[in-house]
Design a protein around this nucleic acid. Sequence first.
DNA 1: TGCCCAATGGAACGCCGTTCCATTGACCGC
DNA 2: GCGGTCAATGGAACGGCGTTCCATTGGGCA
Lengths: 223, 223
Amino acid sequence: MGTVKRGSERREDALSRERIVEAAIELLDDEGESGLTFRVLATRLATGAGALYWHVASKSELLIAAADTVVAQAMDEAPVAASPRDAIRGIAGKVFEAIDAHPWVGTQLARAPWEAPMLRIFERVGRQVQALGVRGGAQFTSASALLSYIVGASIQNATNGRLFEPSVDRVDFLGAMSARWKELDAHEYPFLRKIAAHLPRHDDLAEFLAGLELILTGIEASL
Amino acid sequence: MGTVKRGSERREDALSRERIVEAAIELLDDEGESGLTFRVLATRLATGAGALYWHVASKSELLIAAADTVVAQAMDEAPVAASPRDAIRGIAGKVFEAIDAHPWVGTQLARAPWEAPMLRIFERVGRQVQALGVRGGAQFTSASALLSYIVGASIQNATNGRLFEPSVDRVDFLGAMSARWKELDAHEYPFLRKIAAHLPRHDDLAEFLAGLELILTGIEASL
DNA sequence: TGCCCAATGGAACGCCGTTCCATTGACCGC
DNA sequence: GCGGTCAATGGAACGGCGTTCCATTGGGCA
């Protein structure tokens, strides 16, 4: 092929920011947050750790880029909806799904809440809040509340499957958690002890969406 | 003093789990999350890093204990209230305040959402949800939604003051953020660009409590 | 008084993120 | 075609981390 403006393609397998981010996402998914290491990443890309720094400034920048890629894709996949309320449900569901599939994205959003990935979600939610008929400063309030809930709840959910070995599945995890709650001090933790019984048969996504409805109802009630 | 059951007091300045956790909190507050190091902590306590492991199993256990101490104190300080709704406002406010004063607590809650500190908050919120008249499975849904919102929003707020140097204050931070939002792509980010103007004069705590009202309204509407 | 063992603290291990720099090899002007 | 230039590479080295190991200590009890 002819000349390309800058650097062009040295080799077919040349390093590039995209290839690095892609490999980082794979590694994070495979090995978890502690599995992402410049050395391991370099090995997977058949290069040296130093070379990565030509394309990526630091590990935290790489993490943000990785999270942004996942979030951007999730936002693109969010279904078009008839009503603003449905649109918000769709966006929330996609975020929940993305963080569930990539738990490290949740941690990342909590660590850097004002970076690109969070802004993407905020923008999408905000537009629908506008479409809902919310006016003025309440737009910020409502969109922020939705964002905080969506991300906060997704993070908590995603940790379910991450705490123990991958071999321990969700049902076992909830069973163990329920047992732990039942053993709490009766005087200090009456509420947790009482609802511990509900834990094993609760549906994460349904619970998440039910919580979302509460906020949506609150927003529409204050229109 | 006579004999004490176990180990007793070797010296007045003896190491103990409490003293270690206390020093860790100080260090985290002074230097931020990256400032907590077993070596630095040992130096502050005038001992060696290895000695700490006699009282504390690992760094992550220490972080949980530190966060739990802060959260427990915040919960103890939560005001008694006339109505359940006021009580929830009080609890939320204390959590917000605690995470604002100790941003590392927020990160910690996001990283380990099923540990003791989170359960403390869940219990307090859950009791008030019960008192509000919510029944059965909806208690879990409502309390979870409140918890996710309270913690999620507090984390986002706390990061405001942590991103840049301590010398950069809140107003400058919000101004810089607002400027960044105004420079976003006009086609991709219409909502953020529009509300960027509101950013510099928004009141964090008021905004947080306004978002809380949305959920409370939603909960009471579905009674 | 002497033993025991909880408690200590310093050294060492294997990682980490990051920096440095000698080397490569494709492109551009000649 | 040829040589110079410089973006890009990758391996070595640096300082610091969490954690482990172990020789040493010194207070309480038989």
